[in-house]
Amino acid sequence: MKKVTITDVAKKAGVSKSTVSQYLNERYDYMGEKTKERIKSAIEDLNYSPNYLARSLKQKQTNTIGVIVANILHVFSTHVIRSIQDFCNERHFHVIVCNADDDPDKEKQFIEMLYAKQVDGMIIFPTGGNIALYKKLTNENYPIVFMDRIVPDIEIDTVLLDNKKASLIAVNNFIQNGYRKIGVISPPLIQSLTPRIERINGYKQALQLHDIPLKAEYIADTSFDKVSVHLTRMLNLKDPPGAILALNDLVLFEILAFVKTNKIRIPQDLAIIGIDDVIFASIYHPSLTTIAQPAFSMGKKAANLLLTKINNKMETGDGGIYRFEPALIIRESL
């Protein structure tokens, strides 16, 4: 069976091959509606399927991007990925997703693999552990956008939450509800992980603004499997906190597991606010007050920045920081 070509489509529609090519590439600026309809009908009648591989080789573009997430288990990460895929799909770009597990060696392998596959650009949740590689790519003017984390001295556009404000909002809300003994539990405070550092600094600043003494025993940064140990220590203090701020969704999961095991009542025994709005927050009993990130808007912004660089052959960027506002979702946990 003879393969249908762009020449066949052009002949049936009564237009030139270049006009059909413009239609396929969605360059409609000077194309009339009747012309578009004729080309569309010809494509459908002939069951024409464009040769995207040949087109990509000709244009030196694969219409594929890579996304390297730090930890795909985070609700935020999955929502961002979905948003990026939706945005790219509408523009005929494919997305390859890789999970680095916050491991610089894995991240390096994924960056090199995607680069070898000639993806047109990457959105990376950077570990911060591959400075030389980041610089190499920016020096080559390779399109990159960072998500969620700032890497000092690397001029790459970065999309992230106003993390300090997220903690400020949470602590202020505790205080407005009568709590002044406020603890916080964080994953390990690795310096390169922007959200954790900014959120703990926001917690400290909020206490200072309200003239509440900072108590070291009310602060824990720990691996997820040790959250229960630190929470036990905190709640067994002579003067224990009456409220706990969970610095991200995975910490919140561990706190809720501890609460259930130890039959602690929320909010009667312990008030809780989590940064990152988990999908079950509204149906958990009692429902959970959270600070939400606009993950879908953030993913769309990152994808838009990257595709603009790719399609317009723009420079990688001057290190613009695009921060998004956190949103307080008041429920029943305080």
Rank of each mutant, 00 (worst) to 15 (best):
residue 156 I to S: 03
residue 288 L to F: 00
residue 70 A to I: 06
residue 96 I to K: 08
residue 117 K to P: 03
residue 10 A to V: 12
residue 184 V to E: 00
residue 250 L to F: 08
residue 199 R to P: 00
residue 206 A to P: 00
residue 304 N to Q: 15
residue 290 T to F: 00
residue 273 I to E: 00
residue 243 A to K: 01
residue 70 A to S: 13
residue 196 R to T: 05
residue 311 N to H: 08
residue 72 I to R: 15
residue 209 L to Y: 07
residue 20 V to T: 13
residue 255 I to H: 02
residue 93 F to S: 03
residue 329 I to F: 00
residue 275 I to K: 01
residue 31 M to C: 08
residue 250 L to M: 14
residue 261 T to C: 06
residue 124 I to F: 08
residue 334 L to V: 04
residue 1 M to N: 13
residue 301 K to W: 03
residue 200 I to Y: 01
residue 8 D to S: 08
residue 142 Y to R: 15
residue 72 I to S: 15
residue 1 M to D: 12
residue 116 A to G: 09
residue 317 G to P: 06
residue 254 E to D: 14
residue 285 H to K: 14
residue 69 V to K: 07
residue 240 P to W: 04
residue 174 F to T: 02
residue 279 I to G: 11
residue 7 T to S: 06
residue 212 I to W: 00
residue 250 L to H: 09
residue 68 I to Q: 04
residue 118 Q to S: 13
residue 231 L to Y: 02
residue 307 L to T: 12
residue 105 D to V: 06
residue 106 K to T: 08
residue 1 M to C: 10
residue 99 N to V: 11
residue 301 K to H: 07
residue 72 I to Q: 14
residue 92 H to Q: 07
residue 159 V to R: 03
residue 22 Q to N: 13
residue 66 G to W: 03
residue 11 K to D: 05
residue 11 K to T: 07
residue 166 A to L: 04
residue 122 M to E: 09
residue 157 D to P: 05
residue 277 D to A: 06
residue 213 P to S: 15
residue 33 E to I: 10
residue 243 A to Q: 01
residue 215 K to T: 07
residue 109 Q to T: 12
residue 302 A to Q: 06
residue 148 D to N: 15
residue 315 E to F: 03
residue 174 F to V: 03
residue 168 L to Q: 12
residue 83 S to W: 02
residue 323 R to A: 14
residue 199 R to N: 00
residue 51 N to W: 06
residue 277 D to T: 08
residue 203 Y to H: 06
residue 300 K to L: 03
residue 156 I to V: 12
residue 81 I to Y: 02
residue 191 Q to W: 04
residue 312 N to C: 06
residue 283 I to E: 10
residue 160 L to H: 09
residue 280 F to A: 06
residue 252 L to W: 01
residue 30 Y to K: 13
residue 307 L to C: 07
residue 140 E to Q: 12
residue 268 Q to W: 03
residue 295 A to M: 05
residue 242 G to V: 01
residue 34 K to N: 12
residue 228 S to Y: 01
residue 264 I to K: 03
residue 102 D to T: 10
residue 160 L to C: 12
residue 156 I to C: 05
residue 194 T to Y: 05
residue 19 T to E: 04
residue 256 L to G: 02
residue 198 E to R: 03
residue 98 C to G: 07
residue 284 Y to R: 04
residue 288 L to T: 03
residue 286 P to G: 11
residue 318 D to H: 08
residue 325 E to K: 14
residue 104 P to N: 15
residue 136 K to T: 15
residue 93 F to R: 07
residue 235 L to K: 07
residue 59 Q to W: 09
residue 114 L to W: 02
residue 291 I to W: 01
residue 117 K to D: 11
residue 183 G to T: 04
residue 270 L to F: 02
residue 151 V to H: 05
residue 162 D to S: 13
residue 131 I to V: 14
residue 29 D to Q: 10
residue 305 L to C: 09
residue 212 I to Q: 04
residue 167 S to E: 04
residue 48 Y to W: 08
residue 159 V to S: 09
residue 14 G to W: 08
residue 175 I to S: 00
residue 228 S to M: 01
residue 196 R to A: 10
residue 175 I to D: 01
residue 311 N to G: 09
residue 89 N to P: 02
residue 170 A to R: 07
residue 166 A to D: 06
